[in-house]
């Protein structure tokens, strides 16, 4: 009985309580409490709806796509700056829908942090990759049809991921939004952002036709 309602208790009671409690007790650091709570709350509805309605095929496919994106990080590790995770999350969103994209992104963050170490950044990474996959799912038609939009989205995803992580760095450091520090964080992160953008675009251009072919074949063969 408790187990049945535990998720609702979590979303509607514990997290809002944490926000109010934290903001009242520690006004200096209230922003960071709110941001952590928001990021975690954002993930829970996706988890709940996945639990409620998902076929076995989607379940196994989610595991495969997540594993491919994490394994890709190891496979392409000898080639510098090539990280296919974001591209894989975008592809998952494009072909399997926005919810699937969000979950692929969020789970990729958890799984890859098993190898690289969990940290305070894990929820933010989950949220950032999740949102990138979610938006890719919403834009799936134009993304599949036009290569230019795909490139633009790859650039956008690289910048968005980098910016979201910078916002969180700044909130973390000041407890409030300090604009000069935000600019400094963006500037120091520029080379990394550039790497993200290039590897996103390259991987999206290479992997999208590849996945398109395979997914169409699967649809034809098994009637997905």
């Amino acid at each position: 009985m408790v187990r049945k309602y535990i998720k609702y208790i979590f979303v509607f009671l514990i997290i809002p309580a944490l926000i109010v409690f934290g903001a009242l007790l520690y006004p200096q650091r209230s922003f960071i409490i709110v941001s952590i709570a928001v990021v975690i709350t954002a993930c829970v509805p996706f988890f709940i709806s996945f639990e409620k309605n998902s076929s076995t095929r989607r379940l196994v496919m989610l595991a495969v796509m997540t594993a491919l994106s994490v394994a890709g990080r190891f496979i392409f590790a000898p080639i510098p700056f090539f990280k296919p995770v974001t591209a894989m999350v975008v592809i998952a969103g494009m072909y399997f829908g926005s919810e699937f994209g969000f979950l692929t992104g969020a789970l990729s963050a958890i799984i890859s942090n098993f190898y690289f170490g969990q940290g305070a950044w894990t929820p933010f990474q989950m949220f950032s990759w999740g949102i990138i996959g979610f938006i890719a799912g919403l834009l799936s038609n134009p993304l599949i049809k036009s290569k230019i939009i795909l490139i633009i989205y790859g650039v956008f995803a690289g910048i968005a991921y980098s910016l979201m992580m910078d916002v969180w760095t700044v909130l973390w450091m000041d407890g409030s939004f300090n604009f000069p520090r935000f600019i400094a964080a963006i500037v120091t992160a520029l080379p990394v952002t550039a790497q993200y953008i290039i590897s996103n675009v390259v991987f999206l251009l290479i992997l999208t036709p590849l996945f398109k072919k395979k997914i169409e074949r699967l649809k034809f063969k098994y009637g997905l």
């Binding site: 196994v60 997540t66 789970l107």
Partner: peptide
């Protein structure tokens, strides 16, 4: 929280 997600995680 979600047995299905736990299964996905362990499969992954």
């Amino acid at each position: 929280i979600s047995p299905k997600l736990a299964l996905v995680l362990s499969m992954t």
